[in-house]
Design a protein around this nucleic acid. Structure first.
Length: 237
DNA sequence: AAATTACGCAACCGCCCGTCT
DNA sequence: TAGACGGGCGGTTGCGTAATT
C-alpha cells in the first residue's frame, strides 16, 4: 500500500514561520482546539501542511513552553533517562515539564551527547514496553482522558496534544487540554453553533500580535479576554 | 574588517502505529 | 480483514548567528 502524502504540498509554504502565521495558528488552536490537524490550516487560513502546524504549535506556540537555558537538574534528568530509554525523546520530554521533545533532542545532540561517553551502551531492554513504563502512559490512557475531557458534542472533538503531552498531572502540562476545553466552553457559552462558525481570523487580537494574550496565575493562557465577557475570564482564571 | 568555521535551533521528511470504515 | 487516514515520533537538514582566523 502506498501512502498518499500527508497533504497536497502544491502551493504550501515551507520554512520559517512568520509572526502573522503564528498569530493565525495560535488564534485558531486557542479558540477552536485542534480537531483535525490536516484540515486545520485550511480553516485557519494558513498555507501550511497540517503536520507543520502541529509541530509549530507543539514546539513553539503551545503555552507553558520553557525556553532558554537548561538547569543542571534538567540535564541530569535527560542524561539519566537517555541512558535507560535511548532516543525516546517524547517520553523523556514527558519528564521535563515545559520542554519539548524537539528541544531536548537538539540539546542532546549539541551539548549532552558530547559529555556522555560514546561507548555507553543503551540497554536493549529499552525497547521493552515494560521498561519504558516508567510513568509513560499508553495511548489508550490518552484516549480515555480525551473522552473524559471532551464530552460528546455535535461532532467528535479531539485534542491531539493530549496524547503528545503525556502524563498530564505529573507534568503540569494540562494547559493545552484546558485550552481546548476552555475554547469549547466559551463557545458553548456564546450560544452559537461552533461547527457552523466560519473561522474568524483577525477579530480576537490586535494588530500588534500577541498583546491580547495573557497568562493567568496558573499559567493558563487566554485569548479571549478582550472578546468575551467577564464570566469567561472568571472561568479561565 | 572580511572570510571561514562551528554551533544551535527550527522545521521538514518519512516511517510507524492506532483507529475507523 | 484490508485499506485509508490521521497523528506521533525520531532522524535529518538547512539557515542564522556567534566565534574564530
Amino acid at each position: 500500500m502506498v501512502r498518499a502524502p500527508c497533504c497536497d504540498k502544491t502551493g504550501l509554504k515551507k520554512g520559517a514561520w512568520t509572526p502573522e502565521e503564528d498569530r493565525k495558528l495560535m488564534a485558531y488552536v486557542t479558540r477552536y482546539g485542534c480537531w483535525n490537524w490536516r484540515q486545520l490550516p485550511k480553516f485557519a487560513g494558513l498555507q501550511r501542511c497540517g503536520k507543520s502546524c502541529r509541530l509549530r504549535w507543539l514546539n513553539y506556540l503551545r503555552p507553558n513552553i520553557k525556553r532558554g537555558n537548561y538547569t543542571k537538574e534538567e540535564e541530569e534528568t535527560i542524561v539519566s533517562l537517555h541512558k535507560t530509554l535511548g532516543n525516546r525523546w517524547s517520553i523523556i520530554s514527558g519528564k521535563l515539564p515545559g520542554r519539548t521533545d524537539n528541544e531536548i533532542k537538539n540539546h542532546w545532540h549539541t551539548n549532552l551527547s558530547k559529555r556522555v561517553k560514546p561507548n555507553q551502551p543503551v540497554s536493549s531492554e529499552v525497547m521493552n514496553e515494560d521498561s519504558v513504563s516508567v510513568g509513560a502512559p499508553s495511548k489508550s490512557d490518552h484516549t480515555e482522558k480525551n473522552v473524559e475531557n471532551f464530552p460528546p458534542s455535535s461532532q467528535e472533538i479531539s485534542c491531539s496534544e493530549l496524547s503528545s503531552v503525556s502524563n498530564d498531572s505529573v507534568l503540569g502540562m494540562n494547559t493545552v487540554a484546558e485550552d481546548c476545553v476552555s475554547s469549547m466552553e466559551i463557545f458553548q457559552d456564546s450560544g452559537s453553533d461552533f461547527w457552523d462558525l466560519p473561522f474568524l481570523p483577525d477579530n480576537n487580537y490586535n494588530q500588534d500580535g500577541y498583546e491580547s494574550l495573557f497568562l493567568t496565575e496558573d499559567g493558563y493562557m487566554s485569548f479571549y479576554a478582550s472578546a468575551y465577557d467577564a464570566d469567561a475570564i472568571d472561568w479561565i482564571q
